[in-house]
Design a protein around this nucleic acid. Structure first.
Lengths: 160, 160
DNA sequence: CGCTTGCTTGGAGTGCACTCCAACTCTCTA
DNA sequence: TAGAGAGTTGGAGTGCACTCCAAGCAAGCG
């Protein structure tokens, strides 16, 4: 039955790879398509604990199992975790990500709502970027003050 | 005794005001210079609980009191809270802000370290801005996909 | 004078996102 | 075939940043 996530529109490598200089400790192994939990932990930077927890709370589709019951993650699972990682990085609450995962599970008829959800989040991210930038100005201002103070202090000292 | 913060180099209004479209619910009242906790809560957007808590943990200098023991915040307290608000907005952990507050309390000889602390944080903020921007690309990509899917779906429906 | 509203305190409680534990079973290498 | 090192589970624990509570004091108003 259809627990496999059917509607992960997989982003092409160019999009997937941009940014993130070393957040992903290890490149995704080519050639294989079933990965153990520790390989995935390594790849995503999440702990194995967290991966299991994501599954429990419905943030991951139920992961495929080996004949003995151990998890075997596939390429679509990694794609999904890439996206989740991005959303997490931008501070989307886990509850919202779970909501998104539910929509994906429900299939094509939720596309409009998914779009709305991501668009709202995009606005959020834009707002936060602007906020951060404005703080950067304050930080620059403060740091200048301190640099001046330090310069004056060392000049005073050398003149003594 | 010198619990009053002596080294808040106050940023001029241009720097203080930029960004933050409506984060500060109320303009700082002009003319007066002693504010109750609820006025300050209103001004900063923090709760009175949080303001007291900041003081307890050493993130605020001990605030002046009225003859009956109630807090009376002064302009420098508001300046300090403006800065703390900025740092908080950029995700600086409370523990780091407390460390910074301690340095400020210790006086001029900690200027170099304060500069280092803020510079490090500035790099952090820069990194996070870059990160957010790269996520924005992924978001745009996804949203496009959904928009396309939606368009195709409604076209198909109208052709039926 | 009584009532409402606002302030005080220490300490307990909340919500989020993990993070770890105990007590196993399974896989791999020698 | 033995032992090390992975993986499994439900549930409890952690750290952070608040957030609230109870009990009490103080000021202003009709």
């Amino acid at each position: 039955m259809g627990t496999a996530m059917t509607v992960i529109d997989d982003a092409p490598a160019e999009v997937r790879a941009c940014g993130e200089l070393e957040r992903q400790r290890h490149r995704r192994p080519e050639g294989r398509d079933r990965f153990t939990i520790s390989e995935v932990a390594d790849y995503t930077g999440l702990s194995a604990h967290t991966l299991r927890w994501y599954e429990r709370i419905g943030l991951m589709p139920l992961v495929d199992r080996s004949h003995t019951g151990q998890r075997r993650y596939g390429p679509r699972d990694l794609d999904w975790l890439d996206l989740v990682g991005k959303l997490r990085l931008t501070g989307m609450p886990v509850a919202d990500m779970v909501r998104f995962a539910e929509l994906v599970r429900q299939g094509e008829e939720t596309v409009a709502e998914r779009e709305r959800l991501l668009s709202a989040h995009r606005e959020d991210v834009r707002r936060r970027i602007a906020e951060l930038r404005s703080t950067l100005d304050v930080l620059d201002y403060k740091i200048d003050i301190y640099a001046d103070a330090r310069r004056r202090a060392s000049e005073g000292a050398s003149r003594t």
